[in-house]
Design a protein around this nucleic acid. Structure first.
Lengths: 170, 170
DNA sequence: TATTGTTATACTCTATAACTATA
DNA sequence: TATAGTTATAGAGTATAACAATA
């Protein structure tokens, strides 16, 4: 998927093309956004490679990790959908697969008959811990970002996400 | 897809969870990387929404835009694959669809019988221009990133991509 | 009426492997 | 032998719409 390194940065080239065609005013944001898309692609590939031996995809890992941090150990489907910012059908799909693998189970909500709770099995909890340790050691601990750059990213992208309506936190 | 804003930033919460579980050393990079994933999701949704009326996906638009900047107006398949950093089969697929839509056409390479050249039709060139104008006006011009933040992102993500082996540029 | 979740369906992109044709 | 591209096949996530059950 990632072949030999290119001799030139294709995004810097695209930026120059934008400037040459009279779009100088948006060339820089175009380059920044394109760089985000490409960076995400690189990071996702690393993450999925680490998770593959555990039989997990990133989407399923995120659900597992979310459950492992839930106070009660269980979450309603719609809560998971909201927190992970994914479509309800995506959660249904992910839970189906995790349930087949014996990592989570569905249980009825005690008071609201409409809602389904998802909770980790003990096997799911163990796998979540192991997968998290692997990601921490093989991806996050060697992210390729310097300490100050990590802080800058968190601030810049936090501002962006707030502006995009993700959350209202201060 | 994007429901009501959450009262709290889920990524900041995840970071606190990491710290509470003894992974303080990687909590910040985890948060930065998770923020990149989420930001990409938001941006991709905006881009695809703008491109939809043109009958284009982002992957197909990228190919169209790349061709529109090629000096000769044509590119070999493998060149496109390398520059867009996508799998050869993804290029085959994209070209198939763009060709069905009459936006590009395949032609034989003049000297190397193995390679196929892709080139824009006049309709493809027109659509590329219109789609680029729409993206510039509706996404890049209102990116939600401040000017200094755009510069910071370009520098930080450029360093990252170089480190990841995307290119060898200075 | 509104909400929760599932099902059916469809359409992305992606990836591997096998294959053809050419160098 | 190596390279370029296609085909077949598979799997991933995402989305819409229709539906059932419950509030």
């Amino acid at each position: 998927m990632v072949g030999a390194p290119l001799p030139r940065d294709p995004i810097a080239d695209a930026r120059r093309n934008w400037e040459r065609h009279g779009w100088s005013d948006v060339a820089a944001p175009m380059a920044a956004i394109t760089a985000i898309m490409r960076t995400q692609q690189i990071l996702l590939a690393r993450i999925e490679a680490v998770l593959k031996p555990f039989g997990l995809t990133f989407a399923r890992y995120e659900l597992l990790a979310l459950l492992s941090f839930a106070r009660s150990g269980a979450l309603p489907m719609n809560k998971a959908s909201a927190l992970l910012q994914v479509h309800p059908t995506s959660v249904t799909n992910a839970v189906d697969r995790l349930q087949e693998a014996g990592l989570v189970l569905r249980s009825p909500h005690p008071t609201d008959g409409r809602t389904t709770l998802i909770e980790l099995t003990s096997g799911g909890r163990t796998l979540a811990k192991r997968a998290t340790a692997a990601l921490n050691g093989e991806v996050f601990a060697q992210s390729g970002f310097g300490t100050e750059d990590v802080d800058a990213l968190i601030r810049i992208l936090g501002d962006f996400r707030r502006g995009a309506g993700d959350f209202t936190d201060p």
